[in-house]
Design a protein around this nucleic acid. Structure first.
Lengths: 215, 215
DNA sequence: TAAGTAATGATGCAATTGCAACATTTTACA
DNA sequence: TGTAAAATGTTGCAATTGCATCATTACTTA
């Protein structure tokens, strides 16, 4: 997994942040990071600590959209943060965030600085991965039935690890959020799949018992 | 809208394509572009002509995912083209496509060439836009009801143009595909919205009659 | 370790949705 | 310009799904 400062030395990182006119902010646990940012097109980098992108729908249901660790990035455009349903919340005290104007990244003329070009290239690779992830989610969510969503999800995850096992990284509740379906309806469909002998569920491990071409 | 060769002169474009070991292919109308590409991680550029990314679900329903004109780009990762449901089809005779290995773009060491850095930056900006578009679609599709999907779509589109009008760029059939819902169910809900006086529909123009904060 | 919180599993019921089918209108193009 | 194809509008019906609710189990953390 590419990180934003890969291949950039500490001194060059400092120079880069100066050139890009970055600003640092520190947040306490459970405080909103977006609420202190005035500009409407920024890229943020978690320099220290931990944060989460949270979506709250009009019924008040909260779901964690993304977990952000050190050197992870977020942004107004790339993380939907202009949308009123979204916020980004520090989940540790003294969470440090570097904020850079997206336009300062793009309009910077220091093409002769290798560290700047490396930064752009790292960003490009991170964005490529983000597009891939969003495509995967779209391919799942655009399926019509809960069963098809689950099977598409299983198919993608099992292929990622080349096995007939799928391990939940989080909870079933979070999976239902990810699939954008009702949790109890998902539980019901998982039970159907179990009863039909298509899957086996033990804790967070789902075993696919049908031929899924995972190799 | 940024295009992939913006700010790159013709001679530099030729140099760039040589450095990136690009290959050109020509396709006739209705032929598959992906089927001739062996590599599993490429970026493609439409040099001439027109193509469409098509998704065919397991019921055989086809939908146009993306329309590609000259200088538009696609890719195995960024366009889900590894997924068996997807294909990219030339829609004009003599459609010319430039294929570049994604790894050749990333691993290229010509950081001293301004045109190469410009190319990377253009790619970054195109990817930023793609992420934004995919986020928008996800924010729509993850709404639970057809009504909420339509209203979210209207909200996003009306804000884009700062007016209470929403103009369909394509057909209602295509909109139903985009929203990943049944067309007739969408028509039914549009009728409900009309009957309740929330919208007005004339051809491809939808007028929002509720206060949507579009400024 | 005990108490509180979150996750899981289950199910009845009502609402929403997809599907199929068909008539009508619009569009594309030979 | 005439004809075939595509898009639109409509509706009945069955299937799927969301919602509400509750019991049970698993996790957290003071």
């Amino acid at each position: 997994m590419i990180k934003i400062f890969d291949q950039i030395s500490s001194p060059n990182k400092a120079k880069l942040l100066r050139i890009l006119k970055s600003h640092s902010f520190t947040f306490n646990i459970e405080t909103s990071i977006m609420s202190t940012i005035q500009s409407d097109n920024i890229i943020g980098i978690i320099a220290k600590g931990y944060a989460e992108i949270i979506r709250t729908d009009h019924n008040g249901n909260e779901s964690v959209i993304e977990e952000l660790e050190e050197e992870d990035i977020f942004g107004t455009e790339i993380s939907s943060l202009k949308n009123a349903e979204y916020d980004i919340i520090a989940k540790e005290n003294n969470t440090e965030v570097i904020i850079i104007e997206y336009n300062d990244i793009i309009n910077c003329k220091e093409n002769n600085k290798a560290f700047y070009n490396e930064f752009i290239k790292n960003l490009l690779q991170i964005f490529t991965l983000k597009i891939k992830e969003k495509n995967e989610r779209l391919n799942i969510i655009t399926k019509k039935t809960i069963r098809d969503k689950l099977l598409e999800y299983f198919s993608i995850e099992s292929k990622k690890h080349g096995s007939s096992y799928v391990y939940l990284s989080s909870t079933f509740t979070a999976l239902a959020d990810f699939l954008a379906i009702d949790r109890s309806a998902m539980t019901r469909e998982l039970k159907n799949l179990k009863d039909e002998g298509l899957i086996e569920v033990k804790g967070k491990r789902i075993t696919l018992l049908y031929n899924n071409n995972w190799i």
